[in-house]
């Protein structure tokens, strides 16, 4: 596995551990990671948290947004106006029936609904929104949120 694959799996791996697992030197690993960070290949490091377990007041919604692209900028400027809100955790340009997808978080349904109605819908160029509340997260970032299946192997077989 290369450094990126290993870090994707566990961002806590130290340069030394990464060096061992890729057969590179520690210096080389540090240099490569620095470069990735500079190039924004590695955009950041964060834990994948199952907020449903940590807190009871969290609501997540998936918002489909239709927009009219702007002359000269296309979708970029509108997208920026959308993702600049702190409530928007994820934002994608999409193909298909709508243009932009945003994942929005809030502490209750009303807060999220009002945010969509008063902020997102009001952005110039946004023509329609459709809000879908997330009821349960099963898997995120390659990680399954349910209790991990335990190792069912016999301790020893021969």
């Amino acid at each position: 596995m290369d450094i990126l694959e290993l870090l994707k799996q566990d961002a806590r791996l130290t340069p030394k551990e990464l060096a061992v697992m890729t057969g590179k030197s520690v210096e080389e690993v540090e240099k490569v990671i620095k470069q990735y960070e500079r190039d924004k290949v590695i955009a950041g490091y964060s834990a994948v948290i199952n907020w449903e377990k940590a807190r009871d007041n969290i609501v997540v919604a998936f918002i489909e947004i239709k927009v009219t692209p702007e002359r000269d900028y296309g979708f970029e400027e509108i997208a920026k106006r959308i993702y600049s809100y702190e409530q928007v955790k994820t934002c994608y340009l999409m193909s298909g029936a709508f243009d932009i997808a945003a994942v929005v978080e809030g502490s209750d349904l009303k807060e999220v609904a009002l945010f969509v109605a008063q902020k997102l819908s009001a952005i110039q160029g946004v023509t329609a929104t459709s809000t879908h509340f997330v009821l349960k997260k099963y898997k995120e970032n390659d990680l399954i949120f349910e209790e991990e299946e335990k190792d069912r192997r016999e301790a020893i077989v021969l």
Partner: peptide, 19 residues
């Protein structure tokens, strides 16, 4: 024999399986 030895132990890390 390790089957028997294992029975009384908990928190064992097994690097014994060939699978």
């Amino acid at each position: 024999k390790y089957f028997d030895m294992l029975s009384g132990l908990s928190d064992v890390i097994s690097l014994g399986v060939g699978e």
